[in-house]
Simulated scan of single mutants.
Amino acid sequence: MSEHVHLTPLRGSISVTDAAAWHQVVAASMAHDLPGVPPPSPGQIHAQLTKPTLDSHRLTWLAAGADGVPVGVAGLRLFTSRGRDHLAELELHVDPSHRRNGSGSQLLSAVVEACRTEDRRSLIVEAAADSPGEAFCERWSFRRALSLDHLILHLDKLDEAEILRVAGAVHPGYRLTSWTGTVPDDLSKAFAAAKNAMNDMPVGDLDYGTVDWDAERVRAMAQVIADRGDTLLTIAAVHDDGTMAGYTEILLPQGAPSRAQQYDTAVVPAHRGHGLGLWIKAAMVRRLPAEYPGVTEIETDNAEDNVHMLAVNRELGFRSYRRTREFQLDIPRA
């Protein structure tokens, strides 16, 4: 059965009312499909909808029923940097009480048309494994491109002696350094070079493009995160020759979150095989509760075929708790 649904593209200045409606739909959707995963707060949603993104811009739609009640939302991130300007990334939620009534299909139709208008050939979206979202993707002929294992580390259940041993280990020729927010100027070029090591991470069959990092881009990324009210923590291993051998990043969402999100962890190819990934991640596990005692958990995700990083995370005490899948829709030119 279908119901009358009105789609409103949200353009220009997004109101607090629109952001609240968006949050209402996302919270209901996540409570149904992702029990145990904290939904973003109203403030996070407002920042997501109103603050600039890095090398991209966003299109958004709000679906409401005949009575004006919000029933679904869609956000389309259009990447603009060279190497990714063929790509769009979708977030789509429908309130569980309004599913199977055509709302999601109407939203996706608008999204696909926008992709054609913007000359995008690849649309990617993430859905929880074995969820209604996965069934929706398959019904619309998305192909499964990547499987992700999500893991949680409970900081109150750590083997503290083992973490201290690993974090305190001596790695001749390397030293640890850390910062909050923007990378220090004297490390910015080395950090950008290390960031490019992420381009060889396993992505399955996903057409995710490539990113070219330089000092300006790493600073811009940190500013985007700060502008939306989040906090970025970084620990890096620096070689005696001044190159950055590896790094790990943790994101703390605005407010007082109990769960931190792992961002990138990478070791530059020339420095792999020395245990640096485990070392820098153990150092971060020690740093986080010392500086932010309200944080009790860290969530990370890894491609299921990224056996090395999965092994590192499990050695630290991360345990699997859910799976997601990345889907891709190839969009023919109009």
Rank of each mutant, 00 (worst) to 15 (best):
E216Q: 12
P202K: 05
G209A: 05
V218T: 05
A192C: 00
V224I: 14
I225H: 07
D212N: 11
R228G: 03
V203Q: 13
Y208V: 14
G209I: 01
L206C: 09
V211E: 10
A222W: 01
N196Y: 06
W213M: 11
V218W: 00
T210G: 05
F191S: 01
V203T: 14
I225Q: 11
M201R: 08
V211H: 07
F191W: 06
M201E: 15
R219G: 15
V218D: 03
D200T: 15
D207E: 10
L187Y: 00
A193H: 08
A220T: 08
V203K: 12
A220E: 07
A222D: 09
I225Y: 06
A194E: 03
R219A: 13
A222S: 14
N199A: 10
A194S: 08
D200L: 11
K195I: 03
A193Q: 12
L206I: 05
A194I: 02
M221T: 09
A226T: 10
Q223E: 14
M221S: 14
Q223G: 07
A193M: 12
D207Q: 11
A193P: 02
P202L: 04
P202I: 06
V211L: 12
P202Q: 02
N199C: 04
S188F: 08
D227A: 10
A226E: 13
W213K: 11
D227R: 11
S188G: 05
A215V: 08
D212Q: 13
A220Q: 07
Q223D: 09
R228T: 07
D227G: 05
W213N: 13
Y208Q: 15
P202C: 01
K195N: 13
M198I: 15
R217F: 04
A220L: 04
N196F: 06
W213L: 09
F191G: 00
N196D: 11
D227T: 07
Y208N: 15
Q223L: 11
G204S: 10
A220F: 02
A192T: 04
M198S: 10
A190P: 09
Y208D: 15
M221F: 14
D214W: 00
D214G: 12
K195G: 14
T210C: 03
I225C: 02
Q223C: 01
A226N: 05
L206V: 12
V203E: 06
N199D: 09
F191Q: 04
D205G: 05
A215C: 02
K189N: 13
A222P: 12
E216W: 02
N196G: 11
D205K: 10
D214V: 09
V224D: 01
A220S: 08
R217D: 00
R219S: 15
R228P: 07
V211W: 13
Y208G: 14
S188R: 15
R217P: 00
D207C: 05
S188T: 12
D214I: 06
R217I: 02
